[in-house]
């Protein structure tokens, strides 16, 4: 039986023993980069929808409030994907023969919901609730970005737990007054002072409570 390894592999073997630290470190580093990359998190990625709905046009162009369509965002865990009837409110008369909107009209005729794809798909072991974030003073823009500048809706943050925790540790960096929650362009003159005042005023729980596992996982 011939030898499997050539004599020259000895050098490689020695080198890899000494280099193991660097090799393992390098692999770990590559894995962490891959883990945070859009390939894994879908950050900044748009999703193909049945109708290429443009937030930019409806929000910035027409000035429609977020709540006109996402009507339950202040009261329930889910912000609410509008029923087809909400589209038809306007599109019965506007762009009413546009071929692009045929799936909308078909859905309205048949009663079969449009199959909108989720852009922010949280894992099922996360119990996110929109209403509590709105009630405590977190604005739409903090998590959804400048939706008024998105032609097609993309996922703004990484949605990784480190991103959630960054705010749960220091919510005062993001809190805003109640009447500015839905204002995508507003920014505080002095966020530090305002945030601290709002945290007190809105009875935010302590950092310990906000970063408790069971706050988001149950």
């Amino acid at each position: 039986m011939s030898q499997i390894f050539n004599r020259s592999t000895n050098a490689i073997a020695r080198l890899s023993i000494w280099g193991a630290v660097f090799i393992l470190g390098g692999v770990g580093w590559a894995a962490s980069i891959l883990n945070r990359s859009a390939y894994n998190t879908n950050q900044g990625v748009t999703v193909k929808q049945p109708v290429p709905f443009g937030h930019e046009h409806h929000v910035a162009g027409l000035g429609i409030d977020c709540r006109y369509c996402h009507s339950f965002v202040e009261k329930s865990a889910s912000a609410g994907i509008p029923p087809t009837a909400t589209c038809i409110n306007c599109h019965k008369l506007i762009w009413s023969d546009s071929p692009m909107l045929e799936p909308v009209r078909e859905s309205f005729r048949t009663g079969k919901p449009l199959n909108w794809r989720k852009v922010y798909d949280l894992p099922d072991f996360v119990y996110f609730d929109h209403s509590i974030h709105v009630a405590k003073g977190v604005g739409c823009v903090s998590c959804h970005g400048r939706v008024d500048k998105m032609r097609l809706t993309a996922q703004f943050p990484s949605l990784q737990m480190e991103w959630c925790i960054a705010c749960h540790r220091n919510p005062e960096k993001f809190l805003r007054p109640k009447d500015r929650i839905f204002d995508l362009t507003w920014a505080a003159a002095d966020q530090e002072t305002l945030g601290r005042d709002l945290a007190k005023q809105n009875h935010l729980r302590s950092t310990v409570a906000l970063t408790n596992c069971s706050t988001c996982h149950r």
């Binding site: 329930s76 865990a77 889910s78 994907i81 199959n115 909108w116 894992p123 099922d124 072991f125």
Partner: peptide
């Protein structure tokens, strides 16, 4: 665990 066999709002 990411995609459990349960219904969340608007799930098909």
């Amino acid at each position: 665990m990411h995609h459990q066999a349960k219904i969340k709002p608007f799930r098909e």
